[in-house]
Design a protein around this nucleic acid. Structure first.
Lengths: 155, 155
DNA sequence: TCAAATAATATTGTGGGCAATGTAAAATGC
DNA sequence: GCATTTTACATTGCCCACAATATTATTTGA
């Protein structure tokens, strides 16, 4: 029978970890998005890439990676799948042949219409029983961003 | 040039999303754990499984999945890798042959000693410039858990 | 009692996520 | 001007994460 024989092990209790709920919430949120995004033929990271491109396109791969905190090992194959799906096009920058410019196709651009309904639908799912107030959501948003900045500086 | 031509697109701005910072924080945290866990030969999800087992072992696969919000498609191969690494053993429950009981080996149990230092080291990384106060961390912990419960009920 | 339903885990296939490494182009510096 | 360094992206290999499906064991109920 394993248990808290040593009081020093209190720090190892799952419910004392800050990182675990963030990890779990990320997985659960991605799962919650899936039925909505399936209808658009998107995965959650692909949806994030479109959010970035809908704000400004075209963009270099590196810029997208900076916005989303993802490296090229993740983005290159992901963008290729999006290209195969006809959502974006990828071409070398003639000004600087090291860079790859990602542009929206008409299909990728048009998808924004259908995507407008998603944030409200997701918000609806968080407004049930243990209701997350608007204020709490706001504070959560700010604190998580603060955590992100803190961790990024430390590295 | 894509941009906010339609004011309805405000809801699609990346910096308006609640889910994105949670997704990014989860990735960045896992990255931050890596150098610490590498020394123990663990990945972050494997570390979580050990946290669960250090609290109480042996446990059925399903119990571990419930604690961590992971399904067997994730856990079965992960536990097999942990078994191959000599950290746990897996055996069918003779009482109910459908269940698989996961136990800690001496090696898996002993790893707890070395793991005790990890939470403090991680806390140190969050205590830099845009410092996350203890109070903020506490509130963050509670709010994320509230979000998790809310999303889990909705599904 | 035994077929149907249910439960627990395993398998398959797809798509991330990232460290380490490779490749080629541009910038730097002497 | 040319070697060195740096930058940007691609590739490889390993490990998640999960939907869909399969497999085997238990439970249920007529």
């Amino acid at each position: 029978m394993e248990s808290m024989a040593n009081p020093a092990d209190e720090v190892l209790r799952l419910d004392r970890q800050l990182c675990f709920p963030l990890y779990a919430a990320s997985n659960i949120l991605t799962r919650a998005y899936r039925p909505l995004l399936d209808q658009l033929g998107l995965t959650y990271p692909q949806y994030l890439v479109l959010l970035v491109l809908w704000e400004r396109a075209p963009r270099a791969v590196g810029e997208i990676g900076q916005q989303l905190f993802l490296d090229t090992g993740t983005l290159t194959p992901l963008l290729k799948r999006m290209e195969a799906a006809g959502l974006v096009s990828r071409q070398r920058d003639p000004e600087d042949e090291r860079r790859v410019i990602v542009s929206l196709t008409a299909k990728g651009s048009d998808l924004r219409e259908a995507a407008r309904a998603i944030p409200a639908k997701m918000a609806g799912r968080m407004g049930t029983d243990p209701e997350l107030s608007l204020c709490e959501a706001q504070t959560l948003h700010e604190t998580v961003w603060k955590l992100i900045r803190s961790l990024n500086l430390a590295v």
